[in-house]
Simulated scan of single mutants.
Amino acid sequence: MTEPQSTPLTSNWRAIAVFDIDGVVRDVSGSYRRAIADTVEYFTQSAYRPSSVEIDQLKSEGLWNNDWQASQELIYRYFEAQGQGRSQISLNYDTLVDFFNSRYRGSNPDNWTGYICNEPLLLKPSYLENLTGGGILWGFFSGATRDEALYALSGRLGLVAPLLIAMEDAPGKPNPTGLLAAVEQLEQKHKIDNKLPVIYVGDTVADIYTAENAKTQHPQRNWIGVGILPPHVQETAQRRDGYEKNLQNAGAKIVLSNVELLTPEAIQELINLNC
């Protein structure tokens, strides 16, 4: 399936939806987050393996969208709790990244066999087709590397040349540069000169902060942050409710249990409520 063409299936484009990938398009609880735990455990000599809840707590700070940096931060905090200063901790970042990638991608860089190969998808191509039919332009802004993002978008979903702003293309979230770039590229491709409302869809506090920061930079436009609950936080009501509250406190206008609930009709209702 290709991305939206220059001529919409409806008379006019109504909005732009930009999606995060991890936790929205694919379930990364057994891949990226497992690789974080593996990495922290390895570099603390098996003394500490962070739980899923502890990783979520770190992510809720809104600063640790990059999972390599999140792993590094958890390692630093473990040793600080043991009374060591960061300057005393011998931790090579490049070595950490290599180890993380050996778990997430696998040991062979040319033939991935790691955790990435087993990520459940959270949406179907027909969902994106329905957005196009409803007059919603769409693209992706992810903190994942480009090849890892395309593994899901092109390799798994079958999207042909999807509009993607990846790690290599912009500063990390919550810096809104990547979101702004995705919107600009969609406007240029489809020759849109009016300021359509923009919905940014993500599963972390950093994602919602990104939409809020875009709003701060361009207040004349309608920016709407939509939160998605990743599958791993929906196992208990207490955890789900806490995660939902964090997204709402960050500025999410609505929080959904699955991205496919964000239909063209739901998008129009959000726009009407946030004019």
Rank of each mutant, 00 (worst) to 15 (best):
L153E: 01
N194C: 11
T236Q: 09
G135H: 10
L164Y: 05
S11A: 15
L256T: 06
D98N: 12
Q238M: 08
A17N: 06
S142D: 05
L273V: 05
Q220K: 13
Q238S: 13
Y32W: 12
S71Y: 03
G242T: 09
N92H: 13
W223K: 07
I89Y: 05
T113E: 10
G62Y: 01
L150K: 10
P264H: 08
Y93M: 09
I89Q: 02
H232A: 12
E260Q: 11
L91G: 09
Y76L: 07
R103E: 04
G134S: 11
K189V: 01
G134H: 12
Q188N: 11
L229F: 14
I75S: 04
L153G: 02
N274P: 00
H232P: 13
Q69R: 14
D94C: 02
E61K: 11
P125M: 06
Q217W: 08
V18K: 02
K124T: 10
V24Q: 03
S154H: 10
A181T: 12
A211R: 06
L262Y: 12
H218S: 14
D38R: 03
E265M: 03
I136C: 02
N118V: 06
I21C: 11
A170F: 06
A47H: 14
A206F: 01
L262I: 00
A166P: 13
T145M: 11
P176C: 00
A35V: 07
P4M: 03
Y78I: 00
T210G: 05
P50I: 01
P264E: 05
Y243E: 10
K245C: 07
N118M: 05
A37Q: 01
W64Y: 15
I21F: 03
Q72D: 04
